[in-house]
Amino acid sequence: MSTETETGVEDGNTLFSDIDLSWEHRKNELFRWLLIAASLFGVVMLALLLFDVVTDFYTGLTEFNISLYEFFTQDGSQEETRAGFKGAVIASIMLMIMTAVLAFFVGVGSAIYLEEYAPDSRITRLIEANLANLAGVPSIVYGLLALAAVVNGIGIGPILIAGAVALGLLVMPIIIVSTQEALRAVPDSVRNGSYATGATKWQTIRRVVLPAAIPGIMTGTILALARAIGETAPLIMVGALFVNRTPSGPTDRFSAMPTQIYNWAAQPSEHFIHLAAVGIVVLLSFLFVMNGVAIYIRHRYETEV
């Protein structure tokens, strides 16, 4: 009897002894840490970048006596102690508003057409494939296009409208794609409910589909504008450099935040370089606020549909 129990215990101990998993478990751990490192890489880089910018920002405020009040109330200037960011901030805000107006209606309109009206034909697929290509076109190409077609072609010169055209073309594919995704997220059962209640196609889109999709559309649009506000290359192409004053209207010449920073950073004087650092902090604050608003809208409404 006792031997039987002993063999039984032995069986229990030897049951899995032929399986050696220690190496597999070590591999598990190893790859877990590798993947954590990979995902932290971006965060670390952002932190380093922010640290660098904030240090320059701090030095600018202390050693170069840059007053934030004057920074926001003075226009750009050749004279380093009199140079401010006001003209650039206002130009950027005007640029964003005009870009939004230009890109939003055309972008949302074509997304509605593609999702709600377009038949599933070869032409539709061609348009959608080209939109994906368009979204990948380098931003400087949009600048060249605006320079050739608007600045010189129509001949309006390097004014705010020309910059807005370049940025509008740049963000339009992003707005279209994010709007399409927002429209696709509205279930068909809801559309059918509307049709069965005697609504026309447009009434269905206008009263049911768009209200349900608008948070997604707004989120996509704000993120697209957040990309546009930092774009430098197309504005340089359009000619938005070497202007110091606040634009008086959409037809005035301008230099926006990124081009003003570019301009300062290219100066030999240390003071100008630290002005650029302060400008970068301001530009990043705009970006973070816009992204924050987009995230807020997404969280605020995502549970409701």
Partner: peptide, 20 residues
């Protein structure tokens, strides 16, 4: 068909109220 559906209503298998 829109006019027809104003005289003939429908209730679906899965409840589909509008998000309103």
């Amino acid at each position: 068909p829109v006019a027809l559906r104003r005289k003939i209503g429908q209730v679906f298998q899965k409840p589909n109220p509008f998000p309103k």
